[in-house]
Write a protein that binds this DNA or RNA. Structure first.
Lengths: 160, 160
DNA sequence: CATAAATATCTTGACGTCAAGATAATAGCC
DNA sequence: GGCTATTATCTTGACGTCAAGATATTTATG
């Protein structure tokens, strides 16, 4: 009997006409994701980052040599709006983790690249991040994780 | 091979020292939750609400007669900070969905109550919301949902 | 070529959220 | 009872985000 169950019970008492089972599933997803985000944020903070800046640096890092993408490409990978990306890049440029140069081949665009400092930071941060993620899924057995992945994949497929 | 798989592949190429399987699970959770939130937001918007205002009205509604709680109780149920709740209540009061009266038994506190207008709205909105949630989980079979619920419950238990 | 359409990015304004601190009222303790 | 701690809520300032619109550049078209 967790908090979600209490909420469902309240609904069943007040609105017995509704079948609130899906609300339980979705509610647990949401709450779990919040806990996971919070757990990850701790690692980001420990490295002087947050989810937003980590997201950008990690995208540049895993893109491989030369660790450079256009704002548009970053927008596609991270699924944020252009205004959000501009804001993120502003901050990362200020802190010296990326450089923002005009694209010599297209005057409309820019090239965002990891600096040496940014590269070192994100490599360290990702290592800790992955370790942390391992710790957070540890309660589930290998089989349970596999089952969960399969179900999440199927569900996600309905949206993407 | 979805977007998450592509991200994992990039990491495996760039950082073969990392086991990124948990990143897949957590990434799918996050993305799925975003899709679900977006789907729910559509219903809220259709009723002149958003996730924040729906959250408060729904909490008051399912609390049962007399559909009134203190800001502190609302904060507990919705898990937001006091500043956030003040802001939410300001807007809901402005739009006439709730009333905010001093608590006659404790001069420090307030009593937040659904108005007739707010009660009618949330009853309609919740009906549509639950229907929408049903539609969004429909791709999973009854058994799959049961399994998912069990796994999410176990995982959530590790945090709460 | 000149002009219109498309593209890449930035700017602006409005939200929702949080952390930290301010304010006011009640409760507990000598 | 009077002082102090606690509680309830609001205020302030900073973020991160988005939608819509502005600006600059390139591409396509006649």
């Amino acid at each position: 009997m967790d908090q979600i169950d209490r909420i469902l019970d309240q609904w069943r008492a007040e609105r017995p006409d509704l079948d609130v089972a899906p609300m339980g599933t979705i509610g647990r997803m949401k709450r779990l994701t919040a806990h996971l985000a919070q757990g990850m944020e701790r690692v980001f903070t420990a490295h002087g980052l947050n989810a937003a800046s980590f997201d950008v640096l990690a995208t540049l890092r895993r893109a491989g040599e030369p660790y450079a993408l256009s704002p548009s490409e970053l927008i596609e990978w991270t699924m944020v709006t252009s205004g959000t990306m501009t804001n993120r890049l502003d901050r990362l440029e200020q802190t010296g983790f990326i450089t923002r140069r005009r694209n010599p081949e297209d005057g409309r665009g820019f090239v965002i690249a990891l600096t040496e400092k940014g590269h070192k930071l994100i490599d360290k941060a990702v290592t800790a991040h992955v370790e942390n993620q391992h710790a957070m899924v540890e309660v589930l057995s290998e089989n349970e994780r596999k089952t969960l992945d399969r179900l999440l994949g199927k569900w996600l497929g309905a949206f993407e």
